[in-house]
Write a protein that binds this DNA or RNA. Structure first.
Length: 211
DNA sequence: CATCCTTTGAAGCCG
DNA sequence: CGGCTTCAAAGGATG
């Protein structure tokens, strides 16, 4: 008899071979971002061959960050062993009540959400880089305007060391896999055309002929 | 208050 | 299949 969680994990197990080559990057991500190490280990453990990785006892990431990425809040200290994680009822019983709260949705999305469940795209590597470095640039340059900050970060992204960029790319892949697991069958198509049309005509209208 | 600006990358769409 | 469009984040600016 398969538990709901086991059924959820089956697709991941099937992709074990595909993900194996990512494991070194997963370890790097956990090292680079200790605040989400527990989450990374938890999320990737199902695709790892035995033995299970040592249980991370680091504190869980802030709940707001987890909700931001729509990741269920399963802090490692909620289950003393990975085996107990498969006891879904038991796990739910020990989870903090706020972890079961619905994921907050930005105001600009609430209209769409009212019509039906709105699931955001997972962030790509550059978006994760923006999120990671925005505060640093804001403090370094004393600017808050995101458009200006993004321009600066665009240049830094282009000159970023390859190995550091690969960490963000690996993290983006992890985010995408978690997103796919949480939202089976979801595609970008669901979000396409949901935003109001921007007048961002890449090729500006032809100028009038100068006589 | 809603949308724009600004970036890269992923993915949908269309001819 | 190539090129265009949309949307992920975010916070000040603008209408």
């Amino acid at each position: 008899m398969k538990t709901p969680l086991t059924m959820l994990m089956d697709p991941l197990v099937q992709e074990e071979e595909e993900l194996k080559h990512l494991l070194p990057e997963v370890a790097d991500v956990a090292e680079l971002y200790p605040e989400i190490a527990g989450l990374v280990h938890w999320a990737t453990y199902p695709v790892m061959s035995s033995p299970a990785p040592p249980l991370c006892r680091c504190p869980p990431p802030p709940l707001t960050d987890l909700q931001f990425y729509s990741i269920p809040f399963f802090p490692p200290e909620c289950f003393p062993s990975f085996e107990e994680r498969d006891d879904l009822d038991g796990l739910l019983a020990v989870m903090p009540p706020e972890a079961l709260e619905p994921v907050p949705v930005p105001k600009k999305r609430k209209r769409e959400e009212n019509k039906g469940k709105y699931i955001k795209k997972p962030p790509n590597a550059f978006m994760l880089f923006l999120k990671s470095e925005r505060k640093t640039v804001q403090e370094e340059l004393g600017i808050r305007n995101s458009a200006a900050v993004n321009k600066v970060l665009s240049e830094r992204w282009k000159s970023l060391e390859a190995n550091k960029r690969e960490l963000f790319e690996a993290e983006a892949q992890i985010e995408a896999h978690i997103h796919a697991l949480k939202n089976p069958g979801w595609t970008n198509k669901a979000n396409y055309g949901k935003k109001s049309k921007k007048s961002k005509t890449k090729a500006p209208p032809l100028p009038p002929p100068s006589c």
